[in-house]
Amino acid sequence: MRIPEQRQPTAWYILIILAFVVLFIVTSYKYNLTDRMFPLMVGYFAVPLLLMDLLSLTDTKIGGQISLFFSGKSQKQVDEDADPTPRTLGQELIIFVWMGALVLGIYLIGFLPCTPVFVYCWMKYRGGYSVRQSAYLAIGTIVFVYVLFELILQYELYPGIFLYWYG
């Protein structure tokens, strides 16, 4: 019972979902019968499905059979269908950090300062554009957001956590 290397990230992914499902089931028992009936049904249904999915990744006979039953394809064909884009965890983490920084920035100081800064930095440091091009698009985006949402639609764009509650 071994999971071939190219399928190991998928296995981790399934295990994370499984952990989430277990947490969900445990939480469900806090509630009354009516409230937990459907969630529990769904939760317990998920466990065997996830285990089967995990099995279908192994290079065992049963794994192959599961794959064939649900998809009509052998494991090898499934591998071939997978998205060929090379992805390393490191690259992914870098992008998550960029996006996370944007959301955190919006949460703390609001949309108006974060928008141009994010657009400029991404263009400049990830896209390799010149200072001028980056600045143009940054200004363009903030003008679009400001004119559409703040001026025309009269939204008060979120100003950051401090100004929101005490401004």
Binding site: I106, F111, C114, V119, W122, M123, R126, G127, L137, V145
Partner: peptide, 15 residues
């Protein structure tokens, strides 16, 4: 280029 789309679409989508 996606590097022009990504920051602008992300920001507008979040707004």
């Amino acid at each position: 280029s996606v590097h022009m789309l990504i920051p602008t679409v992300t920001v507008v989508a979040l707004v």
